[in-house]
Amino acid sequence: GKMTGIVKWFNADKGFGFITPDDGSKDVFVHFSAIQNDGYKSLDEGQKVSFTIESGAKGPAAGNVTSL
């Protein structure tokens, strides 16, 4: 299901970062391709987001990332 969290950091040049889930679980990798907006796909440190957990090739990653 949907989770919420805070963006820990995001490197716009490399197109990835990490989200710290509100439930205290392990930080989740986020790739820019998972960001659900029409414009420039980037996130800001400290931004609140909702997301799902998808299993990627390198382990769990955030999917369906939407800013709240």
Score class of each variant (00 low, 15 high):
1 G>P: 06
1 G>M: 09
2 K>L: 04
2 K>I: 09
3 M>L: 11
3 M>N: 11
3 M>I: 12
3 M>H: 08
4 T>C: 07
4 T>Q: 12
4 T>V: 06
5 G>E: 00
5 G>Q: 00
6 I>A: 13
6 I>N: 11
6 I>K: 11
6 I>L: 08
7 V>S: 00
7 V>L: 03
7 V>C: 08
8 K>S: 09
8 K>T: 05
8 K>F: 00
9 W>H: 05
9 W>Q: 08
9 W>N: 07
10 F>G: 01
10 F>Y: 09
11 N>R: 15
11 N>M: 05
12 A>E: 12
12 A>N: 14
13 D>T: 15
13 D>A: 15
13 D>L: 14
15 G>E: 03
15 G>I: 02
15 G>D: 02
15 G>H: 04
17 G>I: 02
17 G>N: 00
17 G>C: 03
18 F>G: 02
19 I>P: 02
19 I>W: 00
19 I>T: 01
19 I>R: 00
20 T>F: 03
20 T>H: 08
20 T>Q: 14
20 T>R: 15
21 P>S: 03
22 D>L: 06
22 D>A: 07
23 D>V: 08
23 D>S: 09
23 D>M: 04
23 D>P: 01
24 G>R: 08
24 G>K: 09
24 G>C: 07
24 G>L: 06
24 G>V: 02
25 S>K: 10
25 S>L: 06
25 S>Q: 11
25 S>D: 12
26 K>L: 07
26 K>Y: 06
27 D>A: 06
27 D>R: 03
28 V>D: 02
28 V>E: 02
28 V>S: 02
28 V>W: 00
28 V>R: 03
28 V>C: 07
29 F>T: 04
29 F>G: 04
29 F>Q: 06
29 F>E: 05
31 H>I: 00
31 H>F: 02
31 H>C: 04
31 H>Q: 06
32 F>L: 09
32 F>G: 10
32 F>I: 12
32 F>A: 13
33 S>N: 08
34 A>H: 06
35 I>G: 03
35 I>A: 04
35 I>P: 03
36 Q>S: 12
36 Q>G: 09
36 Q>I: 13
37 N>C: 15
37 N>A: 15
37 N>H: 13
38 D>Y: 10
38 D>Q: 12
38 D>K: 14
38 D>I: 08
38 D>E: 13
38 D>N: 10
39 G>V: 07
39 G>D: 10
39 G>N: 13
40 Y>S: 13
40 Y>D: 08
40 Y>Q: 13
40 Y>M: 12
41 K>R: 14
41 K>A: 11
41 K>M: 08
41 K>V: 06
42 S>F: 11
42 S>C: 14
43 L>M: 06
43 L>Y: 02
43 L>R: 00
43 L>V: 06
44 D>G: 12
44 D>L: 13
44 D>Y: 11
44 D>K: 15
45 E>C: 15
45 E>P: 15
45 E>H: 14
45 E>Y: 10
45 E>M: 14
45 E>T: 15
45 E>G: 15
45 E>W: 08
46 G>A: 04
46 G>P: 00
46 G>M: 04
46 G>C: 04
47 Q>C: 08
47 Q>L: 07
47 Q>W: 04
47 Q>M: 09
48 K>I: 06
48 K>S: 11
48 K>N: 09
49 V>T: 01
49 V>E: 01
49 V>A: 02
50 S>A: 13
50 S>I: 05
50 S>Q: 12
51 F>Q: 01
51 F>T: 01
51 F>P: 00
51 F>R: 00
52 T>P: 00
52 T>V: 13
52 T>D: 13
52 T>H: 07
52 T>G: 04
52 T>N: 10
53 I>Y: 12
53 I>P: 07
54 E>I: 15
54 E>V: 15
54 E>G: 09
54 E>D: 07
55 S>K: 14
55 S>F: 12
55 S>G: 12
55 S>P: 11
56 G>R: 13
56 G>W: 07
56 G>N: 13
56 G>T: 14
56 G>E: 07
57 A>F: 12
58 K>L: 07
58 K>Y: 08
58 K>R: 12
59 G>V: 04
59 G>W: 05
60 P>E: 07
60 P>H: 09
61 A>S: 12
61 A>L: 12
61 A>C: 13
61 A>H: 11
62 A>I: 03
62 A>H: 01
62 A>E: 01
62 A>T: 02
62 A>P: 02
62 A>S: 02
63 G>W: 11
63 G>V: 13
63 G>P: 02
64 N>H: 03
64 N>E: 10
64 N>L: 05
65 V>L: 04
65 V>R: 00
66 T>P: 02
66 T>N: 09
66 T>D: 07
66 T>C: 12
66 T>G: 05
66 T>E: 13
66 T>F: 08
67 S>A: 14
67 S>H: 13
67 S>N: 06
68 L>D: 05
